[in-house]
Design a protein around this nucleic acid. Structure first.
Length: 111
DNA sequence: ACACTGACCATAA
DNA sequence: ATTATGGCCAGTG
């Protein structure tokens, strides 16, 4: 289809369920390339200008670390949002990361 | 049209 | 253990 990496990232990000998180690499891997993990973050940056409501705070890096928290407004907004959703954060890092990790390649299996 | 950058990840030295 | 580099795609200068 006419969907590029960007659009796919948006769709996956929107499908992240409540109380769950997703990693850039997981999305990239689901799309078929781990290298495009950088683009996932780029899409999140554009998500602010996007018409969609992208829960970018639910997207973290492979280590469950809130790498993009600085892009949420410069404060720990991202961590507080995740905590508000029931996800436990400690020192900008997700606890039980694997327990709350929502992997599209596992949950969505195929697209 | 070319070069660099960007919220990453994995491997090599 | 840490540092460097390759890889991928799109956007911007």
């Amino acid at each position: 289809m006419d969907k590029n990496f960007f659009d796919k990232v948006y769709e996956v990000a929107e499908q992240i369920p409540y109380g769950r998180v997703c990693s850039y690499g997981a999305i990239a891997n689901y799309l078929g390339s781990r290298g495009s993990a950088r683009m996932v973050g780029w899409a999140m940056n554009s998500s602010k200008t996007s018409s969609k409501n992208i829960p970018a705070h639910r997207v973290v890096n492979s280590k469950g670390l809130l790498t993009g928290k600085q892009h949420f407004g410069g404060n720990n907004t991202m961590a507080e949002l995740l905590i508000s959703e029931g996800i436990k954060i400690h020192n900008d890092k997700i606890e039980d990361f694997e327990n709350v990790l929502w992997d599209p390649s596992v949950e969505l299996k195929e697209y």
